[in-house]
């Protein structure tokens, strides 16, 4: 554990806390059932699960896009920023304007918007591409603009819904490194949803395995691997094997009856 990580753990007050969270749609079965989870300030938690574990539902609840059927969501820092699997940039705006829209909707003044959006694009290393339109950017560049836009919401909690799932392996690898760097420099709390076990171990301080139908917290794994990590490293592989085995056991349960 690095010095930084130790500091983070010691000063932790919850950045996100979920208590007995349950969600069902209409009269359907529970999608999420009694999920309790505390994410410390500055912590990077990866939520992992097979299809039907309600990962996206969970993020929507934390983001305040939906209401829980029971239980509570508490985000003391205010509204959390959300990044989708698709970059979801608005195609009629340039990269800069996409970032500025997030600032504008928060009521940030015009001159400050300019400055701040430039800073954020610089942070994701896209200073030269601010004037480009969405269709002129590659998939990786779009996700970085989306990241800058999410950071423009000025929330210290960043929710990410499989943001790299649609990218090629090389780009994804680079963006992993970027995310770790940005999260450090901005001291972000990240709740990251994925069904890629190695990605979860590569990125997270902690991996939370969810069961499926209904989604519940099945098991948690602290990831004690020092940064910089690589997705190919034996330490990452070792923990990934352990988690994958548990995940498979969890999936097999559904075929049994």
């Amino acid at each position: 554990m690095t010095v930084l990580e130790e500091q983070r753990v010691t000063r932790s007050t919850g950045a996100v806390s979920l208590r007995g969270l349950t969600k069902r749609f209409g009269d359907g079965p529970n999608v999420l059932e009694d999920v309790s989870l505390d994410v410390a300030e500055g912590e990077f938690v990866c939520l992992l699960g097979a299809s039907g574990c309600g990962k996206s539902t969970l993020l929507n609840l934390v983001a305040g896009l939906d209401r829980p059927s029971a239980g509570s969501v508490h985000v003391p820092g205010g509204r959390a920023a959300l990044m989708f699997q698709e970059p979801a940039l608005l195609p009629w705006l340039t990269a800069t304007q996409n970032v500025e829209l997030a600032l504008r909707l928060r009521g940030v003044g015009k001159s400050e918007r300019r400055v701040r959006s430039n800073e954020l694009l610089e942070l994701v290393r896209l200073s030269g591409a601010g004037g480009k339109r969405v269709h002129e950017l590659s998939g990786g560049m779009r996700q970085r603009v989306a990241m800058a836009r999410a950071l423009a919401q000025d929330s210290h909690v960043l929710l990410m819904d499989e943001p790299f799932a649609a990218l090629d392996a090389i780009t994804r690898d680079v963006l992993h490194e970027e995310l770790v760097r940005i999260r450090e420099s901005q001291q972000l709390t990240v709740l990251f949803v994925t069904h890629n076990v190695r990605e979860a171990v590569r990125l997270g301080d902690r991996v939370v395995l969810l069961s499926s139908r209904p989604g519940r917290v099945a098991k948690e794994y602290p990831v004690g691997i020092a940064h910089p990590r690589r997705i190919e490293s034996p330490e990452v592989a070792r923990l990934s094997v352990e988690i994958t085995d548990d995940l498979r056991t969890e999936i097999r349960r559904h075929g049994a009856h």
Binding site: E119, E122, L123, V180, R181, E184, S185, Q186
Partner: peptide
């Protein structure tokens, strides 16, 4: 301090 400052160990 600029937002660009990197605090990583690398």
């Amino acid at each position: 301090m600029s937002v660009l400052d990197s605090r990583r160990g690398g």
